[in-house]
């Protein structure tokens, strides 16, 4: 049974897992970092408060992204979804600008 299962793994399945791991690790960190950046610039508090609160909230985002990367219906969808969210966050953070 084991050998049968082993034989059935092709490059397709390996690629599937590799892409999801990429989305779930580097992708999740990217989303987490950009969430921290966007919130640090937009939360309605003093600068240092916005930075600390933004950082704490960002940690909660990463596990959600990792799990979603493995639950998404396809590997490209996982990677695309993570990239899309990261892009939106980056645009938002860039548009908000560094607070004075």
């Amino acid at each position: 049974m084991t050998t049968g299962a082993r034989r059935s793994i092709g490059w397709r399945d390996r690629g599937n897992v590799a892409l999801r791991v990429l989305a779930g690790t580097l992708g999740a960190y990217l989303v987490m970092a950009l969430t921290a950046a966007l919130l640090a610039r937009t939360l309605p508090m003093s600068r240092v408060e916005a930075v600390t609160v933004a950082t704490m909230i960002a940690y909660l985002v990463a596990p959600a992204v990792t799990i979603w990367a493995f639950l998404a219906s396809g590997p490209w969808r996982a990677l695309g979804g993570v990239a899309g969210v990261a892009g939106l966050l980056a645009i938002g953070a860039w548009a908000a600008g560094q607070p004075a």
Binding site: M32, A36, L38, R41, T55, A93, Q98
Partner: peptide, 14 residues
């Protein structure tokens, strides 16, 4: 946080 997620600090303070 200052080691593993410095991006909030970078966004707020450069």
């Amino acid at each position: 946080a200052s080691v593993n997620l410095p991006w909030g600090i970078a966004a707020g303070y450069g």
